[in-house]
């Protein structure tokens, strides 16, 4: 039942939004086609404008991930985190989920395939991936699009919230599963 409602929401969300926007435009006599193309013109400009910021962030993160440091962190924190019933295999996910969305999903699929759907590690990583957004990517794209290079406290806020999210995921999963 719940999964049916969920599927219906995923399926209908976009069509409903698009229909609402177009119908509202028609009622207010907005020239739909001209207005659409006028707004769409900025698509290229914005996407190309964020390239320098994306290169800076994505290159640094690719290097970070290739260096093997995540495994080093995994090894040094595994004994400590074992006290909180955190399986060692989920540690890379805690780091990667702030850095790269596709990598986080990859690590999660790996864990899910290795441990099976009913294992605690799979459920914990599912909650950690499902409740996170790629902080570094969002910062690069959003600030890059308006050419801001001084982020002030935005990055610290994002990382602190990510940390709280990890602590919350571990606590909630300890209670629920």
């Amino acid at each position: 039942m719940l999964s049916q409602i969920m599927n219906a929401i995923s399926l209908w969300a976009l069509p409903v939004i698009i229909l609402t926007i177009l119908t509202a435009g028609l009622f207010k006599r907005v020239p739909l086609y001209e207005t659409f193309t006028d707004g769409a013109k900025d698509g290229f400009k914005v996407a190309v404008g964020i390239i320098p910021y994306l290169v800076a962030i994505i290159v640094a993160i690719s290097m970070f991930r290739a260096s093997g440091i995540i495994e080093m962190i995994e090894n040094s924190f595994a004994p400590l985190l074992a006290h909180f019933h955190v399986p060692a295999d989920t540690i890379p996910l805690m780091i990667v989920r702030s850095l790269s969305g596709s990598a986080a999903l990859g690590v999660f699929s790996d864990i899910a395939n290795n441990f099976g759907p009913d294992d605690y590690a799979t459920k914990l990583s599912a909650v950690m991936v499902g409740s996170s957004e790629t902080t570094f990517y969002v910062l690069a794209v959003y600030f890059g699009s308006v050419g801001i290079s001084k982020l002030r406290y935005a990055m610290l806020t994002g990382l602190l919230a990510d940390f709280i999210g990890i602590v919350a995921a571990v606590s909630v999963c300890n209670l629920v599963f």
Partner: peptide
Amino acid sequence: IMAFWLGMMKIAEKSGL
């Protein structure tokens, strides 16, 4: 996809939505 949604947003904005 950016062009598409920026176009849609322009309509949403002009229509007062």
